[in-house]
Amino acid sequence: MFQFFNKCLKSTSLAVLLFLSAVGYSQDLDTTQDPSGPRRIAGIDLSRGVLFEVSPHTGMMGSSGLFGLRLSMNYSTLNLEIAGEQVIGKTANLYPISVNLNLNLATRGRIIPYGSVGAGLWLTVPTNTIGDKTVTTLGMNFGIGARYYVTRVFGFRIEGKQYITTVTNDRELKDELLFFQEFSVGVTFIFR
């Protein structure tokens, strides 16, 4: 039990540091001076109302390729996101479905870095084995990422995440803690 809490503490310490470091953080505004009108901000301004984003992405989890889709709602520094992915393995496909809370470390500009923490379901679906059933487990994740807005409605997104889940070992009759690392790149479309 102590080892379990120790591992969780080490794994979540990075997420806590990200949240603490966001206090008072600001990014320099990249402004375009228009002498005839108000100052315009290149990139995006997340503090002006609610923005919705649709973000298809691809990447790798361990040595397996993945595809996914994130639907998110931005309000200033907070971003609430639902994510679903397909991780294509050799003997099974993994479908992590999670709800994540992202903290935008800046609210204006072209580059918006963020920290993320979330939890959800992991569905492991065997593909070419006989008799195996779909296994569903709970998992949590945390990570960091950045969005680069090419225009006010389109941008690119990059993210790294650490996933933690447990699986029951039937032979040894105990739960094992599993760690997966994911790296993804994708695009993001913004709607108001």
Binding site: S64, G65, L66, F67, Q86, I88, N93, T127, N128
Partner: peptide
């Protein structure tokens, strides 16, 4: 791309 051949997926 994801290629699903007869139920089996490949990246």
């Amino acid at each position: 791309a994801g290629v699903n051949q007869g139920g089996q997926s490949r990246f």
